[in-house]
């Protein structure tokens, strides 16, 4: 039981892939100009993480050490292809917006990192939990960064939710500031770097308070 609690804590906070390990930065920074994109990519990445962790740990005794990395990459690429095809058929507009960052989930180093560091040494149950927690930890950072950038950049939240939820999503969109001019910097690339820098600083600050 203790093991499982440790896995949860590791994924969400201590070893958060985005904030501590700084893995998977490319999609993290690129698609977070609003919340909806962030959620879309977060869910896709979490699915791939869980699926690849489970399959790697099931086959961990059959895969020989020398060729393990190419095999892991192939497994991950297959799951990413599944995600791509599913998104093309059900969330086509979102797929177009996320663009090459859907296939690029393959090279999200966080996924290969977990396969190598965790799933290749643990049972499939633990690996599934690890994948899920790492995925959620990653998605939460995506969503926070997306929310901050969308709020500062255009003064809305959950804009374009229709891409995810269909017609139901139209009611979700919130305009927080009326008559807001928008701060272009937050939407442009520099805003992503600076925003993530501030989020990491806040996490460091929390850790510092806790130790004192």
């Amino acid at each position: 039981m203790e093991d499982y609690i440790k896995i949860v804590k590791n994924g969400l906070w201590t070893n958060n892939q985005a904030l501590v390990a700084l893995l998977g930065l490319c999609p993290l920074l690129a698609v977070t100009n609003n919340i909806v994109n962030a959620i879309g990519l977060g869910v896709a990445t979490t699915f791939v993480l869980v699926a690849s962790n489970v399959s790697v740990s099931i086959f961990r005794n059959q895969i020989s050490k020398e060729v393990r990395i190419p095999i892991f990459v192939l497994l991950i690429a297959s799951f990413v292809t599944i995600v791509e095809l599913v998104m093309q058929s059900y969330f086509y507009d979102l797929y177009l917006i996320l663009g090459i960052f859907v296939p690029l989930i393959v090279t999200n180093c966080a996924i290969l990192g977990r396969a190598e560091a965790f799933a290749s040494k643990n049972t499939w149950g633990k690996s599934a939990l690890d994948g899920l927690m790492m995925g959620i930890g990653f998605s939460v950072v995506l969503i926070i960064l997306g929310a901050v950038r969308e709020l500062i950049g255009s003064g809305t939240l959950f804009d374009q939710s229709a891409l995810l939820l269909g017609s139901l999503g139209d009611t979700l969109s919130i305009t927080v500031f009326d008559d807001y001019q928008g701060t272009l910097l937050a939407i442009l690339p520099p805003g992503a770097f600076i925003g993530l820098g501030l989020i990491v600083a806040v996490k460091n600050w929390f850790d510092q308070i806790k130790t004192i």
């Binding site: 520099p190 805003g191 770097f193 993530l196 820098g197 990491v200 600083a201 460091n204």
Partner: peptide, 19 residues
């Protein structure tokens, strides 16, 4: 400043370069 040491300052520097 301590909380900005390491990653945060690197990210913010990258942001300024990007600008």
């Amino acid at each position: 400043p301590t909380v900005f040491q390491g990653t945060p300052i690197a990210l913010i520097t990258a942001g300024l370069m990007s600008m």
